[in-house]
Each structure stands twice: as C-alpha cells, then as structure tokens.
Design a protein around this nucleic acid. Structure first.
Length: 114
DNA sequence: TGCGTGACCACGG
DNA sequence: CCCGTGGCCACGC
C-alpha cells in the first residue's frame, strides 16, 4: 500500500492529464508540470510516471522530455516497448528522437486552455 | 536523520 | 547547440 501524502493529488493530476493526451500525439514532463502550475517540479512528473504502470489507462509512452527524446524507455517492460507503442500510433522514432516532434506536441496548457 | 539520486527544466554564459 | 548551476521533492539506503 502507498501512504497518503499531499503530493498524491499532484500525482493524480499528472495521470489525469496524461490520459487526455490524444492518440498519435505526445507531450512532455515540463508541459504537464507547467499546466499543473509547478513547472519547477517537472522531476515529480517523471517520478509520477515511474509509478504510472500501476494505472492501466495512463499512456506513459506519450510523455517525453522537452526535446522529444524517449528518456523513459528503460523504465518500460522492455527498452524497445516505448518506441514500439509510439510507432503503433504512427509516430516515427529515430535514435530515441520523435520525428516531427513540434507538430505532434500536445501542450495541455494550450489544448486544455480555460 | 541525513544524503545521494533521478522518466526534468529554466536560465546564464 | 553545449555546459554549468539552481531548483523541485519523493524515495532508498
């Protein structure tokens, strides 16, 4: 069992945003952190993703670093799974870099703008 | 209790 | 673009 900490809500918000990432699109740790009003806590988003495997509806493979690199691939079941999942969505990945990243980038602060 | 680490990022040079 | 620095904070030892 996980203990209840104040940051659990932050984690929950992260998962909620990631669930909203459309098929075939990608976002970044920083964008999520910024959307949640804590761009300084982008690392916490990364840590949240580390626990994301506990949440089946969270497409962690759509979350990249700010350059569009698959920095989290080693934390998947296999090192190639993240890339394979992206390619299944029609996203081209070369050398851990998502091609056409700026076009595929889904910014919650913009797409979910109030 | 304290310290090092990390799926990160912004900023200055 | 690269590099160094500071900040964030949960977690493991």
């Amino acid at each position: 069992m996980k203990k209840n900490t104040p940051t659990d809500s932050f984690f929950a918000q992260v998962y909620e945003v990631v669930r909203l990432v459309p098929w075939g699109r990608v976002t970044t740790y920083g964008a999520i952190a910024q959307y949640l009003g804590a761009k300084r806590s982008a690392r916490m988003v990364g840590w949240a993703m580390n626990q994301a495997y506990l949440y089946p509806d969270v497409p962690a493979h759509r979350v990249l670093n700010r350059k569009g690199l698959l920095t989290g691939r080693h934390h998947f079941a296999t090192p190639t799974l993240m890339q394979e999942l992206l390619e299944q969505e029609g996203i081209q990945v070369i050398d851990n870099q998502v091609q056409n990243f700026e076009t595929l980038f889904w910014n919650p602060s913009q797409e979910l703008a109030l």
